[in-house]
Design a protein around this nucleic acid. Structure first.
Lengths: 266, 266
DNA sequence: CGTGCATTTGACTACGCTCAATTCCGGTGG
DNA sequence: CCACCGGAATTGAGCGTAGTCAAATGCACG
């Protein structure tokens, strides 16, 4: 983990490590600020005796949590895969550098999302994970996860599901990138963010974008200028209001309508 | 499975079912024509006693194999997810119909590939799987796979790996669709096919495309006309020869060079 | 209160889509 | 065996969406 939780490429300091309070989790209180949703450990271990639960927990969750600041990296492309991470607060982007040296953002990860799945198949992370904001992280060493999963069928099923959801999400994204216009991509992007917040009982029609216009463009396969122009167009059409990185008064139905509308006929 | 192995949407008959010879597998001969690679069951069960192996096998692999003809479906979008499938011979495409009724091909599956992963997360298949050729299939009921996986750590790890490889592949595709020109997409597509054949010790520079130009275009987010034009361009540039659905004399290095070359700077 | 990056807006260009017409094949029936 | 038919593939002409280049403005941080 030394390598994985290494310093950023820039001149930032290493991530600070704060002792993780396993006790609070085991007693069933949940980890307070944590927004793990279905991955929440107390739920996974529901039905196990407190002792057994504590035993598993101590193996499963790294006894610390990482706090990253803006632009610090959680792990780097090519480094040995050792753990999955769950975003508790903040936001993370996954960046892949291709053979020609160009950078491509393959995903944004908000609280509750799992980061690092791209490392499982080859044993090395396929992307570099970079914090977009001050971000707190939960660490799940994968070897331990595998071991516990083979003893706790519910956890095994849960890991299957998490990976399957990632597959589903990526295929949805392939569809967006391959078959939708620039406007539709932006609409789909905003709707996906909106749904994420809604699922967590946060405002669905007003929120902050944790990433830059450039990041959005890179992720959606659009030029920065196009992203800007479309946001202005949306604003003029009354679909939303922008204020820096904040968007408000999203017309969710209107945006949804753009997706059903005449796409590129390929 | 009745539903999953249902009739095609057209007027084709149901897939014929031929008894699966589990015995042959257990004795270590492998399933002959099968090209499962690392998923090959005898390998999974290496180290287990023959009896234990036979017990697992009988649970794991459906006691039949399906033979599909061109345009017949393996499963349909929205139907209950019950099993994964492995392509033994032939080829399959995964087609998703979106809210606006447009069809999108999310993947092609060649011998050794697993089909149906998109159904795990929601419990319903997210795509319809359609045979591109006469295709033989191996069926893995997922409930059984989960059960055996929780008893055989190697199998659990293997399922993780298969799903992770799908994630990796999809993210590579996102990158292709979002950041590459039409020519680069075609080059990447041909190279991926070539690598698939090479890994299976088949000719890497000459093979048949099991799908139509239209399917390729749909998959790559390009118009059919663009696919044709690019293939002609490639041929004139001496990168390959085409003959109907056959391609030969691929200049792999030349195609690879196109990917490293100046992409769209996004 | 600058300096530097992020964002926005404008002008122009080009890649790839659309529409249209022709050719090529594979399958089918006379 | 050949003629015919329908879909697939190919090629051409014209156009539109989104990228590129360029410049101005906004904004955060030192």
């Amino acid at each position: 983990m030394q390598a994985a939780l290494a310093t950023t490429g820039m001149t930032r300091p290493v991530a600070s490590l704060i002792p993780f309070q396993a006790e609070a989790v085991v007693t069933g209180a949940g980890c307070g600020e944590c927004v793990l949703g279905k991955l929440c450990l107390p739920r996974i271990f529901t039905g196990l005796s407190p002792d057994s639960m504590r035993g598993h927990l101590n193996n499963l969750v790294r006894q610390n949590k990482a706090l990253l600041r803006r632009k610090e990296t959680l792990f780097r492309q090519g480094h040995e895969f050792e753990a999955l991470f769950v975003v508790r607060t903040g936001a993370v982007k996954s960046v892949m550098v291709d053979e020609s040296g160009a950078e491509h953002i393959t995903g944004f990860h908000l609280p509750g999302d799992v980061v690092g799945l791209d490392g499982i198949s080859t044993g090395r992370y396929a992307t570099t994970a970079i914090a977009l904001d001050t971000t707190s992280i939960c660490t799940l060493p994968f070897a331990m996860l595998e071991k516990v999963a083979s003893q706790v069928p519910d956890l095994q099923r849960h890991v299957f599901r998490i990976m399957a959801e990632e597959i589903q999400k990526d295929q949805q994204m392939m569809l967006t990138l391959g078959h939708r216009t620039a406007e539709q991509r932006m609409a789909a992007f905003l709707l996906r963010l909106s749904q994420h917040f809604q699922h967590r009982h946060l405002a669905a029609d007003s929120f902050q974008l944790p990433m830059s216009r450039g990041d959005i463009g890179n992720y959606l396969g659009l030029a920065v200028e196009t992203v800007c122009r479309i946001l202005t167009r949306f604003q003029k059409a009354g679909l939303l209001n922008t204020n820096g990185r904040g968007v408000s008064d999203l017309d969710l139905a209107g945006l949804q309508a753009m997706l059903s509308a005449p796409a590129r006929e390929i």
